[in-house]
Design a protein around this nucleic acid. Structure first.
Lengths: 120, 120
DNA sequence: CATATTAATGAATTATAAGTCAACAAAAAT
DNA sequence: ATTTTTGTTGACTTATAATTCATTAATATG
């Protein structure tokens, strides 16, 4: 479990550059790089801030490795597309999210139904 | 619940004095006190060491620390969305791909246009 | 290939965590 | 009540994280 590698994986999965993430954190890009590359021993609060900016809770951050081993099997092209989605306008992003959300809701409903049917 | 209070609870539950724990950590007792009382922002490695000395994994140590606010789908990270999309049916995945593709194409067109306009 | 973006590194400075030693307060034990 | 342990704080030093600014290396992108 390497902090830097984990951070890098999550950051890249979100399609953020070091500069962008450091901007969100109000941290110097150079310093973020040093943390990610393990050249420095960051403060506790720095790690907490980074985790938050990446949308992870602290313990999630340290489970991220496992999560990623699942995800690694995923389609790379979808990954690329998601990077591009992030570059879209807010309204367009929201549209996509809404579509995804409703599809997911639909799937859940379907799963619940078939589960209910199989137990009867 | 903050880091210091968590540490204190666990330490006392184990019947360790600050001096004893600091000894295990090879850390100055005064410094351990500053961490426990929140007077300092410890290094990441310090917290890791303390967690280990207390016999806790990271997620155990910080689960209580985290605020589990229920996030809506829109706030979820792209990574999480990626996992959810992958769980959909093939036809639904394809639909999303198509929508994303057209939005991206539209965005590229727009960007190229505005770039062309600004340079003229 | 040329250019732009991103990542990596250096040097110099500032901010602050951590170590050391000491003194004192609070609490517990005898 | 006195002693002993534990916790809290202060002053000072040392180590190092973090900032800033600049430069170069490496990677994408057209």
């Amino acid at each position: 479990m390497n902090l830097g590698k984990t951070l890098k994986k999550v950051r890249e999965a979100k399609g953020l550059s070091q500069k962008e993430l450091a901007g969100l954190l109000k941290m110097a890009q150079a310093q973020y790089h040093r943390i990610e590359s393990g050249k420095t021993d960051p403060s506790f609060s720095s790690v907490v801030k980074i985790a938050k900016a990446l949308g992870l809770s602290f313990s999630e951050l340290f489970r991220a490795d496992e999560i990623f081993s699942e995800v690694n099997a995923y389609d790379k092209t979808l990954m690329e597309k998601l990077r591009l989605i992030d570059a879209l306008d807010e309204t367009e992003k929201k549209s996509i999210y809404n579509i995804v959300d409703s599809l997911i809701a639909k799937k859940k409903l379907k799963d619940n139904l078939s589960a209910a049917l199989s137990t009867s």
